[in-house]
Each structure stands twice: as structure tokens, then as C-alpha cells.
């Protein structure tokens, strides 16, 4: 019996500094919690906030994860709150001593899970980008560096993306870290342009797996279970997906009309299969 890979989610909500921010951070964390439940089991989600969010508690939580996580598991860590940077060290503001960029790095480096995601929406969060990034870890920060110190808008948009279908660019009912980032980055840019202001934050992303790291699902696909017909259809669908990808790679070599007619043929096949899957879903629901 093989043990399937698990998805762990840790959400840390730091100090707010004002009622307005407190409300915003809580709303963001709540949305994130709901989104996390769509991709993993409740038991694998840990939300640390308020008085509980001390440095010691956070480090203890990471320590406990060391023993729970396996190499094939995935871990996503979200920091919601304010950050600061004194030119030397980044700090995420929590009750008591702050947690530093180095603390976060040491804690995450120690985790056995190979694929990791860190989303830090705080001000000055860009300060930890360089020290945290590696090819297996997706690092998303609200700012370009530690000098962008004003409270950010990025978090609001990032967590808006996780339940907004317009962020789901490929319409597969799943929001990846890349999709949420792209959405939020665009919204931040539009916000400052629309206001006619110079942007005070420039979101950043690094790591190879942002496009594969699903952080929310917008709908629930039916589990294949032991339905052989559904399994066959999904297999056919997968084969057509590959053909579509191959066709897209050849696009520049083809005449537009040729490309469109081949694309149409494949899309009709794919759509027809999906129609059959939907019919099966309909039958099973009856």
C-alpha cells in the first residue's frame, strides 16, 4: 500500500496595529482557511493568530512539522500581517519578540517536504526573498525588497484571487500560486495606475513550481473511484490534453487557418468527452 503525498498548510496572522488592518487580516486568513480546506484535510491546516502567534509557538509548530512531513508532501506557509526591515534584518511582527527572516529560513530549510511554498504579504517582505528562494521552494513576497515599507495591498488581492474564478486563467477550477500571484500583481499595478500614484510595492515570485502548486479549488471534481467508464474518459481527456499542448508548441509553424481547424477538432473531442463526463456525473447524482 502506498501512502499518498499530503498537503500541509500553515497560516500565521501577525499583529495588526489597527482595527482596520486587524479586520482585513482576519478576513484574508478566513478566506485562506476556507481555500485550504478545498485542497487538503482540516487536520493538516494550522492557523496561528492572536496571542498564540508568538515566536516560540511558531518555531515549535515548525519543529513538530519536521516529524510529520515526508519528502513527497507539500507545505504551504502564509504570513499575513506587517513586516519591518532595519537594513539588516527582516522581522514579521507578532506578539513578543518578532520572528525574523532567518528564523523562517532555518525552520523551512529543516522541513523534509521537498516542494514548499512561502507567501509573505507583509510590508518589507521582499527582504527575505533572496535568503529563502531555491528551485523547489516557491517564494512570493508583496514587495521587491525590504525598503518598500508601507502597508501593502498585495495580500488583499492575493487572497481575493483564491476564490475568484477570474484568477483561474486556465479555467481548470484550481487556483495555483502562480495564478493567485499573477492576479494580485496585476491588481496592485492597476490600483496604483488608476490612483495616479507611484507604486510603493512591487510583488515578487520565484521558484519552479508556482504553476503546479494548487492553493485553492473552485469546484469539486468527482472522484474516479472504481468507475471504469469515468476512468476511461479521463484517460482519453488526458491524451487530448497532450495533443493540444503539442499543437500549441507547433503554432508558429502553422498557418493560422490550419492551426485553428486542428485546434477546433481537438477542442471538440475534448468538449465531447467532458460532456460525457458531465452526463455520468448527472447519472450518478440521480
Amino acid at each position: 500500500m502506498t501512502v499518498s503525498a499530503e498537503r500541509y498548510v500553515t497560516i500565521i496572522q501577525g499583529l495588526d496595529g489597527s482595527q482596520t488592518y486587524g479586520q482585513q487580516f482576519t478576513e484574508q486568513a478566513t478566506r485562506l482557511n476556507i481555500a485550504a480546506e478545498s485542497v487538503t484535510e482540516n487536520s493538516l491546516i494550522r492557523f496561528i493568530s492572536g496571542e498564540e502567534a508568538t515566536r516560540q509557538n511558531i518555531l515549535d509548530h515548525f519543529n513538530s512539522l519536521k516529524s510529520s512531513l515526508k519528502e513527497d508532501d507539500r507545505i504551504a506557509v502564509f504570513l499575513i500581517g506587517h513586516g519591518s526591515f532595519d537594513g539588516y534584518e527582516y522581522k514579521f511582527n507578532i506578539p513578543g519578540p518578532d520572528i525574523t527572516g532567518e528564523d523562517i529560513q532555518v525552520a523551512m530549510d529543516a522541513l523534509p517536504a521537498r516542494i514548499q511554498l512561502l507567501v509573505n504579504t507583509s510590508s518589507a517582505s521582499g527582504a527575505i526573498k533572496d535568503q529563502l528562494e531555491n528551485e523547489n521552494r516557491v517564494v512570493i513576497t508583496a514587495t521587491r525588497n525590504g525598503n518598500e515599507r508601507l502597508a501593502t495591498r498585495f495580500g488583499e488581492y492575493f487572497f481575493e484571487a483564491i476564490d475568484d474564478s477570474s484568477a483561474d486563467i486556465n479555467k481548470n477550477n484550481a487556483i495555483t500560486a502562480q495564478e493567485a500571484f499573477d492576479y494580485a500583481e496585476r491588481m496592485v499595478k492597476d490600483y496604483f495606475e488608476y490612483q495616479g500614484q507611484l507604486a510603493t510595492e512591487h510583488p515578487q515570485i520565484s521558484g519552479d513550481y508556482a504553476g503546479q502548486f494548487v492553493i485553492a479549488r473552485l469546484g469539486q471534481d468527482r472522484p474516479v473511484g472504481d468507475d471504469p467508464e469515468l476512468a476511461r474518459l479521463l484517460s482519453e481527456q488526458g491524451a487530448i490534453d497532450i495533443k493540444i499542448e503539442e499543437l500549441q508548441l507547433k503554432k508558429s509553424e502553422l498557418q493560422q487557418d490550419d492551426f485553428l481547424s486542428q485546434l477546433q477538432m481537438l477542442m471538440i473531442e475534448l468538449s465531447t468527452i467532458q460532456e460525457k463526463i458531465d452526463q455520468l456525473d448527472g447519472e450518478s447524482a440521480q
Binding site: I169, K171, L263, Q264, M267, I268, E275
Partner: peptide, 26 residues
């Protein structure tokens, strides 16, 4: 309609409303 729905599907092949529209149009 066909051209525009294919443009949508080229970006998002599993976009179900677009798939349905493609089938209906064709």
C-alpha cells in the same frame, strides 16, 4: 463565435462554458 471560443479554449482548454458553446456553435 467559433474563432472567439477557440481563442478562449486555447488559453483554457477545460473552460466548460466555452466547451459547451463550441459544441453548440459547431
Amino acid at each position: 463565435a467559433r474563432k472567439n471560443v477557440l481563442a478562449a479554449l486555447e488559453i483554457a482548454p477545460h473552460y466548460r462554458p466555452a466547451q459547451k458553446l463550441l459544441l453548440e456553435t459547431t
